[in-house]
């Protein structure tokens, strides 16, 4: 259902890049991207997924996943662990641990570490979305520090392989923060609104960039490409810019 999207973004493999960063521009709904990655990860055997819900509650990912042909309920508690911050706040908005602190990134880091201790093998951490932490009072530096700390922790851990997927909404508003996190990533996906306005057959553009450094040399290059996407009720279609199929 999301195979063409995963293929276009290079996310179809068993071992994904260590850090995938998704930047979402204002007035663009990129939640399909998280649902697609989540669907791919829960299907991979020997992979544990840790989902951190800051944008929507778990119910949303469950329903969206069913449209894409996978059932998260089957994996929940087994290969999938969920830290549902939205539900935590909704259930107890007056004395919730996420709101009591001035730096929620610290609380999140501890929560992630507590869960990672229990996991082994290959692990994928998905954080949707980092802007939620800014809304709770975290600063841009706190976000960057969180990403660096997670990188360090994962590198030092005994995990076979890890992938950290982060998403930042309103990336055009937080341009500096976004580009700072982008520099840490191995695969950057930017969801861009169409300049020409709304269009029935295409929802937006994905700019995919993957920095690569050849081993043993100092040569650094960035491979980038652009694709157009259309999110349908049960699938995501990908087009190349100027493709004949577009009317």
């Amino acid at each position: 259902m999301a195979a063409s999207l995963l293929l276009a973004c290079g996310l179809q493999e068993q071992r994904l890049p260590k850090h995938i960063h998704i930047s979402e521009e204002s007035n663009i709904d990129g939640s399909f991207m998280i649902s697609s990655i989540l669907g791919q990860r829960v299907r991979v055997t020997n992979n544990k997924t840790l989902l951190i819900c800051l944008q929507n509650n778990f119910k949303h990912y469950l329903n969206a996943g069913q449209r894409l042909g996978y059932n998260l309920q089957m994996h929940n508690g087994k290969s999938l662990t969920v830290i549902d911050i939205v539900t935590d706040i909704g259930t107890d908005p007056l004395s919730c641990r996420w709101l009591e602190t001035s730096n929620p990134t610290e609380t999140l880091y501890k929560a992630i570490c507590d869960e990672l201790v229990k996991l082994q093998g290959s692990v994928t951490i998905i954080i949707d979305n980092l802007e939620g932490l800014l809304n709770f009072g975290a600063s841009a530096q706190d976000l960057y520090a969180l990403c660096i700390k997670l990188h360090k922790y994962l590198e030092q851990s005994s995990l076979e392989h890890f992938t950290l997927a982060t998403k930042l909404n309103n990336c055009n508003v937080f341009e500096v923060t976004d580009s700072n996190i982008e520099t840490l990533s191995d695969l950057h996906l930017r969801l861009i609104k169409l300049k020409s306005g709304s269009f029935k057959e295409v929802d937006g553009r994905i700019a995919i960039s993957r920095p690569s450094m050849e081993e043993g040399t100092y040569e650094h290059s960035i491979h980038s490409k652009n694709v157009l996407y259309k999110v349908n009720e049960k699938n995501i279609k990908i087009f190349s810019p100027g493709e004949v199929g577009l009317k």
Binding site: N56, N57, K59, H60, I85, V86, T87, D88, I89, G90, T91, P93, L99, G132, L134, N135, F136, G137
Partner: peptide, 16 residues
């Protein structure tokens, strides 16, 4: 900061 935090909490209440 207050209005953004309030709307985030309101949204969480609505979802729950």
């Amino acid at each position: 900061k207050d209005i953004l935090k309030f709307l985030t909490i309101l949204r969480a209440i609505l979802r729950t």
